[in-house]
Amino acid sequence: MNIKAQLLELADPGYQAFTERLIPGHKNILGVRLPLLRKVAKEIAKENWREFLKQNDEVYFEEIMLKGMVIGYIKDASVNEIIKLIETFIPKMDNWSVCDSFCAGLKITKHHQEKFWPLICSSLSSEDEFEVRFGIVMMLTYYVDNRYVNDVLNHLEHLSHSGYYVRMAIAWAISACYVKYPNLTLAYLKETKLDTFTYHKALQKISESLKSDVSTKEMMKQMKRVDHC
């Protein structure tokens, strides 16, 4: 079956309305549930993924999401080929949902951190909001470890993009660092020159974490900046 026709058959009007609320202003959403999209992506990744990824006629949100999922499921390609596919896909991302789903699927990164690191670092200097978010989400997903955590925090500190979805991703990344490296991240927060919005969002995300106890939540409250207008 034609993939576009298959997606149209899987469309759920109720889920369409739900997704539209999550991604305000985004058009052409069919409402295909993620488990169904993943099933289709796995099938494509086993068979004719090269042919599918060469097509450039996406109309629907789910068609773009599907391409990202397929890249994550590919088993019969070299790391270098996967990196080239990622570079081709990045410009297609125009919302947080596709970006974050794409990053979550790139589990190959865990086994080839050094190979993917230059791509991730270069994405942080982009003018495109979701390319920068891609770099941040990749870092918080695959690089918050003993080897990379200091580099991650350093990159977060020096990002210049002011987009909302970039700043929210920075806050998310800081909270991910805090979960694994609370003392290091706390020291970072006490010295950071992040804008107040992003800084407070980071405190909020740390406080809202299921792993934060009462004392941590209270400490985050105490660390809020006071406006001396």
Results as ranks from 00 to 15, higher is better:
218 E>P: 00
37 L>K: 03
7 L>M: 02
51 E>A: 12
199 Y>M: 00
171 A>S: 06
43 E>L: 10
34 L>T: 13
113 Q>H: 11
198 T>C: 00
152 V>I: 08
58 E>F: 10
66 L>T: 06
222 Q>K: 13
74 I>E: 05
16 Q>D: 02
209 S>L: 02
34 L>Q: 11
166 V>N: 01
229 C>G: 13
150 N>H: 15
202 A>I: 00
192 T>I: 01
160 S>D: 13
4 K>F: 12
151 D>C: 10
189 L>P: 00
55 Q>F: 10
225 R>H: 11
207 S>F: 00
121 C>M: 11
188 Y>E: 01
200 H>I: 03
22 L>T: 03
133 R>D: 08
130 F>W: 12
161 H>G: 01
17 A>V: 11
40 V>H: 05
188 Y>C: 01
76 D>R: 08
159 L>K: 02
56 N>V: 07
112 H>W: 09
97 S>Y: 15
185 T>W: 05
201 K>N: 04
209 S>T: 00
41 A>F: 08
37 L>D: 02
1 M>G: 13
76 D>Y: 12
13 P>I: 05
136 I>N: 03
60 Y>N: 03
149 V>P: 04
167 R>K: 15
202 A>R: 02
142 Y>H: 12
107 K>V: 15
172 W>E: 12
49 W>S: 10
72 G>W: 05
83 I>W: 06
227 D>Y: 14
39 K>Q: 14
40 V>P: 04
